[in-house]
């Protein structure tokens, strides 16, 4: 057993546990908090995979901004938990079964097409973070310049859309 593998297994167990916690928590606030924990473990994975910039983005954007927004909305709407519903009684067992089948299938596919010689070594402390970040920035602003700009427009549109959707009419009439 190498140390990387031990770290991976521990982190994997944590991420799966938090994901399950997110899905099965009765209280939506707990769910959100579980998800934050999950995002953080994924960010650690990114660090292990040698992608520090993505790891930081994951923590600031996902774990920070997005999850704050979620918590804010949950609390704004008072939607911590919902009243029990009798609709779709067969949905839950069917979903479990299908999810199980899906996991089995995908694991089977991955194992049957296993690439054991493709391994990942975690970068050590000597890695020049700025180096890799520079390289990535060069690529992002040269090869992927147009998608980058389009993404900025997308964010602008999303911002305008969110404002328009939630805006209160002055004369009291809801839009």
């Amino acid at each position: 057993m190498n140390s990387d593998l031990i770290v991976f297994i521990v982190l994997a167990i944590v991420s799966i546990a938090t994901a399950m916690g997110m899905v099965f928590s009765r209280n939506a606030v707990y769910s959100a908090l579980f998800l934050v924990l999950n995002f953080v473990t994924v960010a650690v994975f990114y660090l292990l995979l040698g992608a520090p910039f993505i790891a930081m983005s994951q923590i600031t954007v996902y774990g920070g901004a997005i999850m704050v927004l979620f918590l804010f909305v949950i609390m704004l709407l008072g939607a911590e938990s919902l009243a029990p519903s009798k609709a779709l009684p067969w949905q839950r067992p069917l979903a479990f079964t299908l999810a199980l089948v899906l996991v089995v299938e995908s694991v089977y596919l991955i194992v049957s097409r296993a690439q054991p010689n493709l391994g990942i070594t975690a970068p050590d402390a000597s890695l020049n973070t700025m180096d890799s970040l520079r390289q990535m920035a060069m690529e992002l602003f040269s090869k992927y310049l147009l998608p980058f700009e389009v993404t900025s427009i997308l964010l602008l549109v999303a911002m305008v859309g969110a404002i328009v959707l939630t805006k209160q009419e002055k004369n009291g009439r809801e839009s």
Partner: peptide, 11 residues
């Protein structure tokens, strides 16, 4: 070797 097979990540 401190390597983790990529298949583990995929799984």
């Amino acid at each position: 070797m401190n390597t983790v097979p990529v298949d583990y990540y995929v799984i």
